[in-house]
């Protein structure tokens, strides 16, 4: 075994398939996008190299700035609402309550459903004339609060965030649940004997020992929010009047509706960069906490 490990030639050959795959489907497309972002290109005719003009044009425009604001807000909601919710549920369920398995399944269903299905579901819920939400509001006498949720610029962002957050609570909960289950039960039993209550155990033992899992969850939640596209596209397409626009929906519009492959690629590069940087920053922050 040692002989094989020290044989660098063998190691390289064995790693080659993975490297080729990684380079050809991840690295090369990123490099291509980087190149496209420096050109003016309609996708069909010849590319014209224009340097950083696309980036300048983008960051001077109001639409991208608005979409970045929405994106940051979404990331904030994901970390501030989605993760705490998932953590609370994970702690409660792993505490051995009745119907543990059933709760796990129920919370995990939205993760398994296709986003298109969830989008259609929420479109029906939000439908202004015969939707569930307005129906319930008028049933309990709050018809004044009924609204066209996805058509009102002031409320559309909140209306879109709710299903986006709801969808992945179960996913994070599952990760955290698995993390909690792997904590040595002797530690918790010892704490119980010492007289710690459920809250104290959660704060002093479970959460600190769960830090590596929380780190992964935070990275997933933040980068997930930064590149979110599908639900917004189905529910509003970024509208009305850019009110629910995020960079990825803007990228889609630029590339496939306006034929601006250059500008669209510039947004893609921006999304990649911001996802990488945020992942690195989150890792640094957690490292400090762990030590």
């Amino acid at each position: 075994m040692d002989k094989v490990r020290h044989n660098k030639g063998a190691a390289i050959i064995l790693l080659l398939p993975a490297i080729i795959l990684f380079v050809s489907i991840i690295i090369i497309p990123i490099i291509c996008s980087g190149y496209y972002s420096l050109t003016e290109w309609d996708g069909i005719r010849d590319k014209v190299f224009i340097g950083f003009s696309n980036y300048r044009e983008l960051f001077e425009g109001e639409v991208l700035r608005g979409s970045i604001k929405n994106m940051l807000l979404l990331a904030l909601c994901a970390v501030g609402i989605q993760l705490p919710l998932a953590l609370v549920f994970a702690i409660l369920i792993s505490g051995g309550i009745k119907g543990e398995k059933m709760y796990m399944t129920v919370f995990f269903i939205p993760v398994m459903l296709s986003t298109v299905v969830i989008g259609q579901l929420w479109l029906k819920i939000y439908n202004p004339s015969h939707g569930l939400l307005n129906g319930i509001l008028s049933m309990i006498g709050l018809e004044n609060y009924a609204d066209s949720w996805l058509g009102n610029q002031g409320k559309v962002l909140a209306a879109v965030f709710v299903p986006m957050i709801w969808q992945y609570v179960g996913y994070h909960m599952l990760l955290m649940y698995a993390g909690i289950k792997s904590i040595n039960s002797e530690i918790i039993e010892a704490a119980k004997i010492d007289g710690a209550n459920g809250f104290q155990i959660a704060c002093r033992i479970t959460i600190p020992m769960l830090m590596p899992v929380l780190e992964v969850c935070t990275i997933f939640a933040v980068t997930g929010a930064f590149k979110s596209f599908d639900l917004i596209y189905i529910l509003t397409g970024g509208g009305p009047a850019h009110a629910s626009e995020v960079p990825s929906t803007l990228m889609f519009t630029e590339i496939f509706q306006k034929n601006h492959y250059g500008v669209g690629s510039a947004i893609a590069i921006f999304i990649i960069l911001i996802c990488f940087t945020s992942a690195i920053i989150i890792k640094r922050i957690f490292k400090r906490w762990e030590v």
Binding site: K8, G9, I12, I13, L16, I19, I20, V23, S24, I28
Partner: peptide, 22 residues
């Protein structure tokens, strides 16, 4: 020697994959 061989191998494979993609 081995190192050089490996480098050549990687280069050829990468080049092939790029070319076949393009």
């Amino acid at each position: 020697m081995k190192k050089r061989l490996a480098a050549i191998l990687i280069a050829t494979f990468t080049l092939c994959s790029i070319l076949s993609g393009c």
